[in-house]
Amino acid sequence: MEDIWIELTKEALDVGAAAAFLATPGAGGLSLFVGTTRRWTGEQETEELAYDAYAPMAEQEMRRLVAQAQGRWPVLKACVLHRLGVVPVAEASVVVGVATPHRAEAFDACRFLIDALKQQVPIWKREHYADGSTAWVQGSAPPALQEEIPSPEADE
């Protein structure tokens, strides 16, 4: 069975299916991060988000980030699932999960994956506000070049 589940989908994300996928006898714990659509950002009220992606590259980058995590922590299984298109408030837009032998590395690897995804994977969100206006959200900096990302497995 494949140990990595990468998916971009327009369907609702199934957190239970992600947890079931990660279950494995070698794991002492699994860590899941579920990103959801927030209604309030400061004074602005969001009704829904819509996600756009450079899909083939996004999947490739997700796979590469999982490989980096595997180089740094004993990741037995991993999933990175991202919803595209419209995501209503309070629904999940992203599910990142890992299974590892011990809990500390599960938290660390999961945190790395969601942080790196938000910096590197070519996906963009567009806010649809309650007042009818819309705006593309722009990250703080362009994605890093490959050589700028610390990659432990590159030494091998």
């Binding site: 938000k118 963009w124 990250g139």
Partner: peptide, 10 residues
């Protein structure tokens, strides 16, 4: 070639 502005997935 693709032009990638700072991403905002997640």
């Amino acid at each position: 070639v693709a032009l990638i502005t700072p991403v905002s997935g997640g």
